[in-house]
């Protein structure tokens, strides 16, 4: 039985800065990292592997340098890593991305039965949280997003029981396998790789699937398969560092002003 973990290599958005003068994005020197949310997905996959004996395959769609991220997955204990890379996959929105990933999972499923697909909640560059549901819908898997705890996997009955966290409540859900699980950061603490594993990962194989291998229709993938388009980008109006009133002389007034400001900006809803 196989767990497929989907990861993405993303620019480290915490390092991205906006030039205060020109308003353009300063990306220089910003490294690509494994999407932080995906590290929890990988960790959960590895824990399930240790507990139930799954194999873990990690897939990622991206440019060739995504290999670095996949090697990191190998160093943490993934059994197999597959890079989905082709110029035809480029420029994809979530719809076109989930297409390639779902097809890759299908392809993996031909060799070994897929029990679960585990994704991170969302990526830090796109923040959409849509690829997971996209994969689940395309594959017809049970869709379990916002999972903060996997309670039990019943391999005989092919069922999984998870806890989902929604606004103001948790939900205990039971679903049949195969399932797509998108996990929250609170689900675990990702491990740190050992050095022998890192050394092993340096020259372990990274399988490359391009569209020749995948054979997908060009109008369903990449830019052409994307339903959304970006009209424009601009830098957000940022409010930073406003000192409110004179809190030493008149704390009451400062407090009132602050609450008013928060209400005005819709930050505080009373």
């Amino acid at each position: 039985m196989l767990i497929v973990t989907c990861v993405k290599q993303v620019p480290d958005t915490t390092q991205v800065k906006v030039d205060p003068v020109t308003g353009t994005l300063i990306r220089e020197g910003v490294p690509f990292i494994i999407n932080p949310f995906d590290t929890y997905a990988l960790e959960e996959s590895l824990r399930l592997k240790e507990k139930y004996g799954f194999r873990v395959a990690v897939i990622s769609m991206g440019p060739p340098n995504t290999e670095v991220t996949l090697r990191k997955a190998l160093s943490l204990g993934a059994d197999e890593v597959i890079l989905l890379s082709d110029r035809a996959f480029g420029g994809a929105d979530t719809l076109a991305t989930s297409m390639v990933l779902a097809e890759a999972i299908k392809k993996l499923g031909k060799k070994d039965e897929v029990a679960m697909v585990i994704c991170g909640r969302q990526t830090i560059d796109g923040d959409t949280a849509q690829v997971g549901p996209g994969i689940a819908t395309r594959l017809g898997y049970s869709q379990l997003t916002l999972v903060d705890h996997i309670e039990n996997v019943d391999l005989n009955a092919k069922k999984i029981r998870v806890r989902r966290r929604l606004e103001g409540r948790h939900e205990l859900v039971e679903a049949p396998l195969p399932a797509m699980i998108a996990v929250l950061r609170e689900i675990n603490r990702p491990r740190y790789p050992t050095v022998p594993m890192r050394i092993f990962a340096q020259d372990a194989p990274v399988i490359l699937w391009n569209n020749k291998e995948m054979g997908l229709r060009e109008d369903t993938i990449g830019l052409k398969g994307s339903a959304t388009q970006v009209r424009k980008i601009f830098s957000p109006h940022r409010e930073k560092g406003e000192i409110i009133g004179d809190g030493v002389k008149d704390p009451q007034a400062s407090a009132r002003l602050l609450v008013e400001r928060l209400k005005e900006k819709n930050i505080l809803i009373l």
Binding site: R189, R191, Y192, P193, T194, V195
Partner: peptide
Amino acid sequence: VEMKAKVPE
């Protein structure tokens, strides 16, 4: 650290 990756959180 290197063999067991067992470190304070």
